[in-house]
Design a protein around this nucleic acid. Structure first.
Lengths: 189, 189
DNA sequence: AGTGATTTGTGATGTAGATCACATTTTCAT
DNA sequence: ATGAAAATGTGATCTACATCACAAATCACT
C-alpha cells in the first residue's frame, strides 16, 4: 500500500478531512527510509520532527547513567514516535529513537504540525485524539509496571504484539519490561 | 479567586479565546463541592465527566485483586482528573477518584467537551495541549519507575510537590511510589 | 563457508523491597 | 475529654529480581 493511503486510512479512523484538506495534510510530511540500526533521534539532539511509521519497527529508549537501556515504545506501522518532551518544549532529546529493522516513515515537523492544526480544525481534532490514546496507554503501562510481576507483563506484551517475538531480540524485550535479560531468559522454566 | 477566573487563567496559558468564547466554555462546566473522603468516581461506574480541580486534593487510583491500592495521580488545583480510559471509550471505570481533602471542582461532561471542541477551534487546541502535557508527564513517571529506586522517586515527588508532605498520609505517598508503607517509613534512616 | 561479534542460557550469589506481626502515635467523632 | 479507628514505626523474615561469570548458540559480514 502507498504511504499516502496508509496515512489516509489511519487519519480517517479519527478525523474527517475533505480531499483537499488531506492533500494539504499529506504534503506536509516527508517520506524517509532507514536501514536497520540507523539512528533517527540521538540523545542530546534538538528535536523538531515526529515520525509516523509505515513499515518496519523502531524503538524509542532512554539510557541511564549506568548505560542501562529502558525502552519506552516499540513503534510499529501506524504508530507515532519521537521524543515528545523535547519536541514540545524545545529541550534537548533525552530519548533516542532508532531502527530495529529497515523502516519507512513519514516525518512531520513541529512547525508543519502546528500549521496544520491551525489551518484545519479536523487536523487538530486528529492530533488531540492521537495523544488521548497515547496517554491512556501510557497510564495503563504505568499501572501494569506497579502492579504486575515480570511474567505477567511479558505475557501481556506478547498477547498484544505477538509479532515482536520474531522481530525483536529478547534483551530489548527485557529493556521494555524493565527487567534484566537474565531474568527474562529464566521466565520459561 | 473565583472559579471562573481560575479556569480563565488556566486556559489562557494554552489557548486564546474571545470573551464570548470563554463565556460559552465556562458555562459548560458545573461547579461541585466535595467533602474529604467523598467518592467522585467508583470502580465499575459509567464515567461521563472529567474534573478540573479548583481547591483541595483528589486522588485517582486503582485497586488490584489483592486490594492493594496504586495511585495514578494526586490532583491538585488546576489539574484535571477522571478515568480517562473509561471516559473516552465508554468502558466501565477501573480507576476511582476520591477526595483527600475537602475540594471544589468544575466538572465537564464528555458531551460538552466534544461540543466545545467542535464549536471552538481554540478549545480543541486547549484540550490537545492539556493531554500532550499529561502524556509527557506520564512517560517521565514510567521511566522513573523503571530507572530509579524508591528513595530517588520519593525525593523527586517531594521536590515537585512539597505540599503533599503536609496534606497526604504517608501510606498514600507509598501507594503513589509503588512501594509498601513500611519501606517508605524506613527510608528516613 | 568461516570467523568474529552479538545474543542467549544458566549457575551462584547478593540485595532492595515485600510481608507479617505488633507496639505506638495521631486523628476523629461523639 | 474520651474511646475507637486510622496511621505510623520497627523488628524479623522472605522473595523476586539483579548482578556477575562464563559457556553455548546465533548472527552477520567478507
Amino acid at each position: 500500500m502507498q504511504p499516502k493511503q496508509i496515512l489516509k486510512e489511519h487519519v480517517a479512523k479519527i478525523a474527517t478531512l475533505t480531499e483537499e484538506e488531506f492533500e494539504n495534510f499529506f504534503n506536509r510530511f516527508e517520506l524517509r527510509s532507514f536501514k536497520k540500526g540507523q539512528t533517527i533521534i540521538a540523545a542530546g539532539d534538538r528535536v523538531d520532527r515526529e515520525y509516523f511509521v509505515l513499515s518496519g519497527c523502531l524503538k524509542s529508549f532512554y539510557i541511564n547513567d549506568d548505560l542501562k537501556m529502558f525502552i519506552l515504545q516499540f513503534a510499529m506501522p501506524t504508530w507515532w514516535t519521537s521524543d515528545f518532551n523535547a519536541l514540545y518544549t524545545g529541550a534537548k532529546a533525552t530519548i533516542s529513537v532508532d531502527c530495529i529493522t529497515d523502516a519507512e516513515v513519514l516525518s512531520l515537523s513541529n512547525e508543519n504540525r502546528e500549521a496544520l492544526c491551525k489551518e484545519i480544525h479536523q487536523a487538530e481534532h486528529f492530533f488531540r485524539w492521537r495523544t488521548n490514546k497515547g496517554y491512556v496507554a501510557s497510564q495503563k503501562r504505568l499501572l501494569s509496571m506497579m502492579n504486575n510481576d515480570v511474567k505477567h507483563r511479558y505475557e501481556e506484551l506478547m498477547a498484544q504484539y505477538p509479532e515482536l517475538y520474531q522481530i525483536v531480540p529478547k534483551q530489548l524485550i527485557a529493556a521494555y519490561l524493565g527487567v534484566s535479560r537474565e531474568t527474562l531468559s529464566r521466565l520459561h522454566h
